[in-house]
Design a protein around this nucleic acid. Sequence first.
DNA 1: CGCGGCCTTGAGAAATGTCAACTTACGTGG
DNA 2: CCACGTAAGTTGACATTTCTCAAGGCCGCG
Lengths: 247, 247
Amino acid sequence: MTTLAALATPSPRSACARSGGPSYCDACKVRPLAVCAALEAGELHELDAIVHQGRVAAKETFIHQGEDATSVFSVVEGTVRLYKLLSDGRRQIVGFAMPGDFLGLALHNRYGFSADAVDAVALCKFDRAEFDRLVSAKPHFLRRLHEFATHELVIAQEQMTLIGRRSAEERIAAFLLMMRDRWARISGASVTVQLPMQRLDIADYLGLTIETVSRTLTRLARDRVILIVPEAVRILDEGRLAQLARS
Amino acid sequence: MTTLAALATPSPRSACARSGGPSYCDACKVRPLAVCAALEAGELHELDAIVHQGRVAAKETFIHQGEDATSVFSVVEGTVRLYKLLSDGRRQIVGFAMPGDFLGLALHNRYGFSADAVDAVALCKFDRAEFDRLVSAKPHFLRRLHEFATHELVIAQEQMTLIGRRSAEERIAAFLLMMRDRWARISGASVTVQLPMQRLDIADYLGLTIETVSRTLTRLARDRVILIVPEAVRILDEGRLAQLARS
DNA sequence: CGCGGCCTTGAGAAATGTCAACTTACGTGG
DNA sequence: CCACGTAAGTTGACATTTCTCAAGGCCGCG
C-alpha cells in the first residue's frame, strides 16, 4: 500500500533487472538508457551493493507527494505516472516514466509529486542517502544525473507550451508522436504506439477531459490518421499527424 | 540585435555586479542567491577570470531558440522572459528569470527557448566551454548547478499544473503570490508586488489571453483583493488571494 | 497636441467542459 | 457456459469558460 510495502521482492543487493545468473547490474537490459550508464564496469558493483530491486503492481502508488523523499528510483520495466493532485481532486500528470527513466529528483527532501504504476512496473530503488554518497564520490555520475534533470526540464518546458498554447487536436497528435519516439528509443521503431495508460491519464497529462480525448481520437480514427486498437494506436498517416502536431 | 551584440558593456574579466572598487565577484550583490554561491572566496577569482559582465536593454533578445548554446548566464539585475514560439506566432513563456537565476541549461548544445530582457537587465555571461571546464573541476559547483536545475524542474511541474488544471482566476492569484515570494527572496517582503512584465507576458506565461488577464485583475481589484498600480499590484487581502490560488 | 503602445471593456463566437446515457470488454460466480 | 456486474470508453446534448474581434481610454513622448 505504501512506498516500501509496494516493493514486493525483498532481495536487497540484487541486480538492476538482471536476467538470471550472477546478480549484477551489468546484466541490466536498460542500463545503456538509464543513469547507471555513467558508471564503468568496474564501478557497477558499487551500485549493485546499494540497489534494491522491486516490483509495483498496476495502480499501486509508491511515491506520495509531500512525503519525505527517502528513495530514488530507476524504472526498468513498465510505465509510471507522476502527478500532482489539487485539494479538490483535480489531477495533473506531470510526466510518464518509462524504462531507463530516473525518478526522485526532489527539493527540500520532499517529493513534489505522487507516482503510481500504470501497468506492472519493475524498478531499482536506492536509499537516497546511500545514492547521494555514491553520487558525491563520482562526479561523472553527478554529471549524468544533471543531464537527466536538464532533459526533464526541456521536456517540461515543451509540455507547458503544449498545454498552454495548443488545441486539443494538436495536443493529442503531439502526444502520440512523443509516445512513439519514446518507445522507439526503448524497443525500436514501430507504427503501433503502445498506450498502457488509460484515457483519463492522457486527459490529465494534456490538460483535457476524458471526453475531449476520446472524441479527438475518434475523429483522428475517422479521418484515417490513426487506427485505434486495444492498449495502443496504429499510426496510418504519419505526415498528417506530424502536421497536426506542429501547426 | 543578436546575442553578443546585445551585451553592450565589453569589459571582460570584470566583476559579477561589482559595486565599484576592485573588480571581483566577491562584491556581487546577488552572489548568495546565484550559482556562484557554491564557490568559496578562494575560488571566486577563477569565475572572475572568465566572466563577462553585460547589459541588455528592455525588449532585446539575447538568446535565440534553436541557436548554438555557446553561453550561459546569471541574472544580476532586472527580469528576463524565457519563451517558446510556435510557427504561427503563438508564444508560451516558460519562465521569468530574476536576479540570482541561472540561464542556459540546454540540450544538445542548442537553446530550447528564446530570452528577452523585460526591463533593463544586467547579467554575467560565460562561455559555455570555459564554464564547463570550471564546473568539471569543481564537483560542488556541479552539485549546485544540479540543485538549480532540480528547482527549475519543480517549478516547471507546478506551472504545468497551474496551466493544465486551474481556472483563469486561480492562475492569476497564484502568479501574483509567486511573484511576491520571488521578490521577497531578492529584496525582502512587501505587499506591493512589482510586475515589470506587461499583460501580454503574463497572459503568455499563464496560457491565457491578454483580455482574460485584464478582466481577471480588474475583478480582483473590484473585489478589493488587490489594488492595481503602475508596474505593480498591491495585495490588500492576502488570505483571500491565497484561498483563490489554492482552491 | 497628436500619435502609438498598452490596457480595459463589451458583445458574440468557439472550444472545451459537464452531465448523462449507452456500449463494450472482461472477469466472476452461479 | 451463461448472466451479471464493473470499469473503461464512446457519444450526444447542453453549459460554461475563455477566446476573438472591435472599440475606446489612458498616458507618456515627440
